[in-house]
Design a protein around this nucleic acid. Sequence first.
DNA 1: TCATTTAACGCAACTTAGTTGCATCTGTCA
DNA 2: TGACAGATGCAACTAAGTTGCGTTAAATGA
Lengths: 128, 128
Amino acid sequence: MKERQTKSRLAIRELLVSAKQPLSATELIEALLRLGLAVNKTTVYRELEKLLKKNEISEVDFGEGQKRYELTHGDHHHHAVCTECRAVVELEIEGRLGDILSMVTKQSGFRIEKHLIEFFGVCEACQS
Amino acid sequence: MKERQTKSRLAIRELLVSAKQPLSATELIEALLRLGLAVNKTTVYRELEKLLKKNEISEVDFGEGQKRYELTHGDHHHHAVCTECRAVVELEIEGRLGDILSMVTKQSGFRIEKHLIEFFGVCEACQS
DNA sequence: TCATTTAACGCAACTTAGTTGCATCTGTCA
DNA sequence: TGACAGATGCAACTAAGTTGCGTTAAATGA
C-alpha cells in the first residue's frame, strides 16, 4: 500500500520544510505539541527514519549528543552555528574541500567516504 | 589538599597515555575491568572531567552519540577514522585550514571559535 | 457508504550515555 | 596514628533513541 497522508506525517514534513535550521527530534515533538498535535516520540523517530531512507532529509551532527535533521537540498554542505542564539548559517566551502580531501587521502591512505565539518562561534547579532 | 594518587586514577591515566586512539568512557571502563579494576562509571566520568579541566585530555567527537578522549598533544588536530576496523589516524591539515576559516568567517559574519572536522572511510588494510 | 486491509500509531518498557546526591572510604599530612 | 577532605560507589535519575505489540484509522474496492 502507498504511504498514508496522516496528520502527523504532514505536520512533521511541514515543520521540516519551513524550518530555518536543522531540527532535533525533541524540537519537532515540541513544535508539534504547539500545533496541538501530541505526537508520540516513537512516531516522530519512525517518520524521520523513513524520510532519511527516502533521502528527503539529511542528518546533521553538531556534536550535541543528539541528531538534527534538515531537508535535503543541493549537495552535502556545512554550517556555522552560533553558540549564543543557536542561529545556523549554511556555508559554501565545497571549492576548498577538494584539496583538503586529497591531502587527507594522501596522509592517511584511507578511501575517504564521508566527513563531519561544522563551525561554531558567535553570530553578528550576538557579537554586539 | 592535593590530588590523590589512587589506583583508578593512575590506571585511567595510563590507559589514556598508551591508547592508540581516542577512548570512550565505556571503553575505559571495560579496559579497567580487564586490568582487574572494577571502577564505577561515575568515577570514570568524574576523572575524565578533571583531566579535561586540567587540559590533560581533549574531547573528540566522531558523531557516534558518545564522546571520546585522547591525551592533549600539540595543537588541535583532526582524524581519519576507519569505518571497518575503527583504526584512527591523526591528520595534519592545519595548513589548509586557514583559508577555509577565513572563507567561513566571510560567508557567515560569525566570529568562529571552534570547529568539528573529522573524516571517515576505509583504511588501507581494510581495503584489500 | 461501508467493510476490509494494513500502514501508522501509541504505549510501555528498554537501552545507552551521562549526571547527581549522599553516605562511605581512604590517601595524605601533621 | 588520627583527622580532614578528596575520591569512590551506589542508586536513582535524565535524555536520546529503540523495540514489541496491541490498537487505530487511512485508503481502497465493492
